[in-house]
C-alpha cells in the first residue's frame, strides 16, 4: 500500500465497525451485573441462567432437528445438481435457476412458501421449516460443489468407465470422493445458515414448535437482557467454528 496510505482509514473503519458490536456483546455476556449495560465484574452466571432456560433449550432442540434434516437433504440434492450442471448444462439459465434461492429476498420466499403450504393444505411445523430451508440449502451446496467440480480432473472418471464400472458405481467411488471436501464444506455452511435462519422460519413454522431464532426474536423484542448476550456469544462461537472449519477444509484440499 505504498502510495495508497489513506486507504488504511476506510480499511480500519470497516473492521472496527464489523467487530466492535461483537466484542461488546461477548464482553457484556460475562458481566456479573443484572444491568445489560454497566459492568459489575466478571461472572459466568448468565451462561448458567441460559442453561436452565426451558424455552431456549426447546428452541435449540427444534432448530437442531431442522438443521440436521435440511443439511442432509440439501447435501444429496445439491451435490447431484452440481455434478449435473457441470456436465450437462449448456446454458447459464439452469445455473441461474439453481443459484436463485441464494439471492432471493428471504421475505419473498417466506410468504411464497406460506401461500404454497396453505394451498396444498400442509399444516405448518418443523417439517415445513425443514422443506423451506432445503431450498436455499440446495443452492449453497450446489455453488460450493460446482466450483470444486470445475477443478476435478475428469480422466479418472473416464478411466473408471473404460474399465467397465457402471455410471452409479463411478459416481459413488470416483466422483463423490474427489469432491468430498466441497460436499462437507457446503453441508457445514447449510447447517450454519439453517441454525440461524429466522425470516423463512417465521413464515413457515407452526405456533407450537418455535425454532431457536424465533425464541430469540421474542426475547429481543421484549428487551435487552444479559442472558441474550450469553446466548449471542455462544451462537457466534458455533457459527465461527463451522465457517472456519468449512474454509479450512476447502483450502487444505485446494492447495494439494
Amino acid at each position: 500500500m505504498r502510495s495508497l496510505r489513506w486507504l488504511r482509514v476506510p480499511f480500519v473503519i470497516t473492521y472496527a465497525f464489523l467487530y466492535l458490536p461483537i466484542v461488546v456483546l461477548v464482553v457484556l455476556s460475562f458481566n456479573a451485573s443484572s444491568s445489560p449495560f454497566s459492568w459489575g465484574g466478571f461472572s459466568t452466571r448468565w451462561y448458567s441462567v441460559l442453561a436452565g432456560d426451558a424455552d431456549v433449550l426447546r428452541g435449540l432442540g427444534n432448530t437442531l432437528v431442522v438443521a440436521v434434516g435440511a443439511t442432509a437433504l440439501s447435501v444429496v440434492l445439491g451435490t447431484l445438481l452440481a455434478v449435473g450442471l457441470q456436465r450437462h448444462s449448456r446454458s447459464g439459465l439452469l445455473d441461474a435457476f439453481a443459484l436463485a434461492p441464494a439471492i432471493m429476498p428471504d421475505i419473498v420466499l417466506g410468504i411464497g412458501l406460506l401461500a404454497f403450504f396453505s394451498l396444498v393444505s400442509v399444516t405448518l411445523g418443523l417439517h415445513s421449516v425443514l422443506l423451506a430451508h432445503v431450498v436455499f440449502g440446495i443452492a449453497f451446496v450446489a455453488a460450493v460443489v460446482k466450483a470444486r467440480m470445475s477443478q476435478v480432473d475428469s480422466s479418472l472418471e473416464e478411466a473408471s468407465r473404460d474399465l467397465g464400472a457402471g455410471a452409479v458405481s463411478t459416481f459413488l467411488r470416483i466422483t463423490v470422493p474427489s469432491i468430498m471436501p466441497a460436499i462437507i464444506a457446503g453441508g457445514l455452511l447449510v447447517f450454519t445458515l439453517s441454525l440461524d435462519e429466522f425470516v423463512i422460519a417465521f413464515f413457515t413454522d407452526g405456533p407450537t414448535t418455535p425454532t431457536l431464532p424465533i425464541v430469540i426474536y421474542s426475547m429481543v423484542r421484549f428487551g435487552v437482557t444479559p442472558e441474550i448476550n450469553a446466548l449471542a456469544s455462544l451462537l457466534m462461537l458455533v457459527s465461527f467454528t463451522a465457517v472456519l472449519a468449512a474454509q479450512r477444509i476447502t483450502r487444505l484440499t485446494d492447495s494439494v
Binding site: L195, D196, Y217, I228, L235, M236, S239, A242, V243
Partner: peptide
C-alpha cells in the same frame, strides 16, 4: 455468518 437477529440486537446494546 452469524445470526441476523443477534447482529441486529448488538446495535440495540
Amino acid at each position: 455468518w452469524t445470526n441476523f437477529l443477534i447482529r441486529t440486537y448488538a446495535w440495540i446494546v
